[in-house]
């Protein structure tokens, strides 16, 4: 297959030759060849969204926040006590399941909270 490509005022003769295992592309006197089996992989790189790295601590049951043991900006370790939640005749110690910084605390001491309400976001 032959054709001409015109770029600006200049014309380039192009020839594409298909062999059994390769494809040749001739541009003027220059020749480029590609193996048919050669596949070009595009790097599948996804950038982690910032939210993805955030760690949410949710209320396991409805209740009242009786104690808050950390403050925004604190670094917490995995297993560190974050909240004491009094709920339905029980006291619940809520421990951190991540290591990192406390980004935001959404509740106050004495506040009544619902099940699955976000208590804290860490990063």
């Amino acid at each position: 297959m032959k054709f001409l490509i015109k770029i600006g005022d200049k014309e380039y003769p192009i020839e594409i030759l298909e062999g059994e295992n390769e494809i040749k592309i001739k541009v003027g006197e220059k020749e480029f060849s590609f193996k048919k089996e050669e596949k070009v992989f595009l790097a599948k790189t996804k950038f982690e969204k910032k939210e993805f790295r955030e760690k949410k601590i949710l209320a396991p049951i409805a209740g009242t926040i009786s104690e808050i043991f950390v403050k925004e900006g604190d670094f917490v370790k995995e297993g560190q006590k974050l909240f004491l939640l009094s709920a339905m005749k029980m006291e619940n110690e809520i421990l951190s399941d991540f290591e990192g910084k406390v980004k935001k605390i959404f509740v106050k001491k004495g506040e009544n909270i619902k099940k699955d309400q976000i208590l804290l976001i860490g990063e």
Binding site: I57, P60, K89, M90, E91, N92, E93, I94, L95, D97
Partner: peptide
């Protein structure tokens, strides 16, 4: 009587 739960993430440890 007092029941105390230790909760790690979403799980009652």
């Amino acid at each position: 009587i007092l029941t105390e739960n230790i909760i790690f993430g979403k799980e009652v440890r």
